[in-house]
């Protein structure tokens, strides 16, 4: 909110949440492929590289490395 920006979260629309939680497992995961129904739905829009990707992670950051460097360069 610092920058006066409103983020909307379409995946958390309760209708979608209830629907997705009610689906059989195979719609979500099989043999290393996650989010299967979403990949299928976006089949014609997603670039091949993204569609085939199997190592997606959350919003990650190189924490340990950053802290070490901040400590050495800025806080010492």
């Amino acid at each position: 909110m610092t920058f006066g920006i409103e983020t909307r979260v379409p995946f958390l629309d309760f209708r979608l949440v209830v629907y997705l939680l009610s689906l059989p497992d195979e719609y979500k995961y099989k043999k290393g492929t996650t989010k299967r129904i979403l990949r299928d739905a976006l089949n014609e829009y997603l670039p091949e590289l993204v569609k085939q990707r199997k190592d997606k992670i959350g919003f990650a950051s190189p924490d340990f490395k950053l802290l070490k460097e901040l400590d050495e360069k800025h806080w010492s």
Binding site: I5, R8, V9, F11, V17, Y29, K35, I37
Partner: peptide, 15 residues
């Protein structure tokens, strides 16, 4: 002013 954010997709779809 307004952004869409993908929060929740990992939780709901085994991400």
């Amino acid at each position: 002013k307004v952004l869409l954010d993908g929060q929740g997709a990992d939780e709901l779809l085994v991400g």
